[in-house]
Nucleic acid binder design. Structure first.
Length: 799
DNA sequence: CAGTGAGCGAGCTTCCGCTTGACTT
């Protein structure tokens, strides 16, 4: 048995460290936290100084009992969890749960997994820092109190099963606020002047722009008219050197942002792929807020840069974390071996690795150097000057490997086409020939909607959430139905273009699509209702600075300046009163709004959240005649729907005629417009307006769909017409009544018999019972598991 | 992907942060 047991948080880390330490050390992992507050409402006794009830969750029991056994046998136990609040608490929980003794327990910390760092840590052991542990307890207890007191208020005042919390509710608020800014936004039009000149040789033409814009078409026209007979010349030339520096290596948040922009990954996908790279030893730990590189990494990068690109490309750089609240328990995300420019693996692993490699390498490279030229062009008939700018790269530096892409926000702040073209040789006083000039009507743009990654960036700026929770938070707010990531169609908009060419002025109207979105975060009506409710009654909690403020107090606790229970008392007293008060006094929230009066019945038309989502309604339940109802469609919201749009909703579902003696009905569902016929669904092709589908068109759509279905069938089983092999998206599968069966790998399709199908269907039917039986040790678990299953399934299915 | 839309009421939901697999589609 080894003399020393060293416990870290992650098994991959344990493996690496074991290699550094040799035979005397057994290195094991706790797999994160091993204890947590019990899941029931009595986890914290607010009357007794916030006394907590902890338990080892069932999935951690095996880990804990193994560690306990090993700890008993070891001479010394080294607690090597991360050096941050959570890590310190993990060490403390291990100490308590494993029944460790002070005299043979040592607490050590390191910020990088390198041999010198580990050895140095072992030479400098310390004791558990109870101030830091208390700070974590305060954090944990506060989050539980907030989450488990606010959520039930929502169940009572809005809808069951909703949730609220210090992090998720602010994330939703950001999205709701942004949506409102966009709705409120009124674009302003202005005419932008762009001209193309040459110096005699037509192929040397270059672009110039007027820095100011004209508010009206009349002013723009006047400008172009003035330019008809004008003489143009170079008035001023200025050449300046410019430099661009590389970005710091990746943290979790910046990796998520770049992977989203450059690879189109969701934050969850980025983390999944990064996890695989980490586990296979390709990269360092992927949940980090630090931009720091270890000395060994900096040296390795230097060596690689010098040998691959030359000495002039290297520049030693150390980065400082700007994010407030960063705990820097790890290194930045970097490749383990800089010499590996690419790796084996699937496509997404390769692409993400390359991104990480390039960013880390570039962070140790020299600046890119440019020469930027700005030319001012005189117009003889006007006082304004045109600007032309060009950029020549003198030295590529880090750009040889890595170019960071721009955010949407930065994007819209910049001119769409302010490219860095090359200017031909120019001299002051040189006359210029105008090729053409245009005045194009351009509109100011509303603030950009959040992508998942942009939301993570914002949360990080506000100090809300941690690297390990960004991706889960983004998932939570979508799973709760507060926000939805989707595609929305834009609207077309006309704009004017005036062109001056060969001393002739022409004007045309063009059309563009504006406001189309893909993969952006939109609030849902329920998200809006919950947000407004929380802002009205619990503004302190959903305030953007709440986390930053309590973090300061946690820091004070960590430094021994504040008693953690006092901090919680001061918070909980007023908070709990607010909860009580809201439960008694607040109205139910459904964001009801009256839109107008139905001209046919004379009854009021209103919109609100109903039992099954947002709806419009004509009349009220008090009327003798029952009210009429219709659900809102994709992209429509309670807050913004117009009376006209609401009235349109009552036109569907609509009967369009008969086919095979059965009625055909057109309606709009969750996945778009469809025809219902004989209890089957046929979606309408794109671009067909559900309101004016004719009987003939509907019949054709049904026939087309049937034809396509027939083409998909590979084989039908004679024994049962409900059993057939079909070509699916990912290959053939068996449709057996309502069951979809996988075909086992290596099976020849020709040889499948009906008996096989019956056998596979049988095997497919009952699921997941074996695994559940194992976890029924505790009464609470046994009671909860089946009850949980049923409603959870329903909600996921109804999406 | 329809239909529904009140209120009654048992028993359920819920937080954030630290880690991986074991699940399904």
């Amino acid at each position: 048995m080894a003399k020393n047991l060293l416990i870290v948080e992650s098994p991959a880390k344990a493996k690496t460290i074991e290699g550094y330490l040799g035979k005397d050390f057994l290195v094991k992992s706790s797999y994160g936290h091993i204890r947590d507050l019990v899941k029931t409402d009595d986890a914290i006794d607010t009357e007794k100084n916030f006394e907590q009830k902890y338990e080892v969750p069932s999935d951690k029991k095996a880990v804990v009992s193994e560690l306990r056994k090993l700890a008993k046998a070891a001479e010394t136990v080294w607690l090597a969890s991360d050096e941050d609040r959570e890590g310190e608490a993990i060490s403390w929980h291990l100490f308590e749960t494993l029944g460790l003794k002070d005299e043979n327990t040592k607490r050590i910390v390191f910020h990088e997994i390198t041999k010198p760092a580990i050895l140095k840590a072992i030479d400098n052991p310390r004791k558990i820092d109870y101030n830091l542990v208390n700070a974590q307890q305060a954090r944990r207890v506060l989050d539980r109190l907030v989450g488990f007191e606010l959520s039930p208020v929502l169940w009572k005042k809005v809808k069951p099963s909703l949730s609220a919390g210090r992090v998720q509710s602010v994330a939703v608020r950001l999205i709701v606020d942004r949506e409102r800014e966009i709705n409120k936004f009124e674009p302003e039009a202005a005419f932008k002047i762009v001209a193309f000149f040459h110096t005699g040789k037509v192929k040397d033409s270059f672009k110039a722009e007027l820095p100011q814009r004209f508010a009206t078409e009349a002013e723009a026209t006047k400008f172009l008219e003035d330019c008809k007979a004008a003489l143009f010349s170079v008035k001023n030339l200025e050449t300046k050197p410019a430099k661009r520096s590389p970005s710091a290596p990746f943290t979790t948040s910046t990796l998520q942002q770049e992977a989203s922009r450059k690879l189109g990954f969701s934050v969850a996908r980025t983390m999944q792929v990064a996890q695989r790279l980490y586990e296979s030893g390709r990269i360092t730990y992927m949940r980090t807020d630090s931009v720091n590189l270890s000395d060994t990494a900096i040296e390795a990068a230097e060596k690689e840069i010098k040998s691959a690109y030359g000495n002039q490309y290297h520049k030693l750089r150390k980065y400082k974390t700007k994010t407030s609240g960063a705990q820097e328990a790890h290194e930045a995300i970097r490749p383990t071996y800089f010499s590996e420019h690419t790796i084996d693996g699937d496509a997404s692993e390769k692409r993400l690795y390359e991104l990480i490699w390039k960013r880390a390498i570039a962070s140790q490279m020299s600046e890119a150097e440019f020469e930027r030229t700005l030319a001012k062009i005189d117009i003889s008939t006007r006082t304004e000057d045109l600007n032309a700018s060009g950029e020549v790269m003198k030295f590529d530096g880090f750009l040889k490997v890595y170019m960071e892409s721009l955010d949407d926000e930065q994007d819209s702040a910049m001119d769409e086409d302010s490219d860095n073209a090359i200017l031909p040789p120019l001299a002051v006083g040189m006359p210029l020939t105008l090729k053409n000039m245009s005045a194009t009507e351009r509109f100011t743009r509303p603030p950009a909607r959040y992508t998942e990654a942009a939301l993570v960036k914002k949360l990080e700026e506000l100090g809300i959430g941690r690297p390990s929770t960004y991706a889960p938070t983004i998932s939570t707010i979508q799973n709760r139905g507060y926000v939805i990531k989707e595609e929305r169609e834009g609207k077309s908009r006309d704009y004017r273009v005036l062109t001056l060419k060969d001393a002739e002025l022409t004007a045309i109207t063009k059309t563009e699509i504006t406001g189309a979105e893909k993969g952006k975060m939109f609030p849902t009506d329920i998200g809006v209702v919950v947000n407004d409710f929380l802002v009205e009654h619990f503004n302190g909690i959903v305030d953007f600075h709440f986390t930053a403020n309590v973090e300061k107090e946690f820091d004070d606790i960590a430094h021994g300046l504040t008693e953690w229970t006092k901090m919680l008392h001061d918070f909980y007293g007023p908070f709990h009163s607010e909860v009580e008060d809201t439960l008694v006094n607040a109205d139910r929230a459904n964001n009801e709004r009256e839109l107008g009066i139905d001209p046919v019945s004379g009854k009021p038309v209103s919109v609100r959240i109903g039992k099954f989502g947002p709806l419009v309604q004509i009349g009220s339940p008090d009327d003798e005649e029952k009210p009429r109802f219709a659900s809102l469609r994709k992209g429509q919201m309670i807050e913004t729907i117009t009376f006209e749009d609401a009235m349109e909703l009552f036109k569907l579902p609509k009967k369009v005629g008969l086919f095979e003696d059965k009625e055909m009905t057109v309606a709009v569902g969750r996945f778009g417009p469809y025809i219902r016929h004989n209890s089957a669904f046929y979606s309408l092709p794109k671009g067909v307006d559900p309101l004016d589908v004719t009987e003939e068109e509907a019949i054709q759509i049904i026939k087309d769909k049937r034809q396509k279905d027939i083409e998909k069938v590979i084989r039908v089983f004679e024994e049962n017409p409900d059993a057939q092999i079909e070509q699916g998206r990912w290959g053939p599968f068996i449709r057996f009544g309502k069951q979809n069966l996988k075909i086992p790998k290596g099976t020849e399709i020709e040889k499948i018999t009906y008996a096989d199908v019956l056998k596979w269907a049988e095997a497919d039917a009952p699921k997941g019972k074996a695994t559940k039986a194992k976890t029924t040790e505790k009464k609470t678990v046994a009671k909860k598991a089946p009850a949980k299953k049923a409603p959870a399934k329903k909600t996921t299915k109804s999406k």
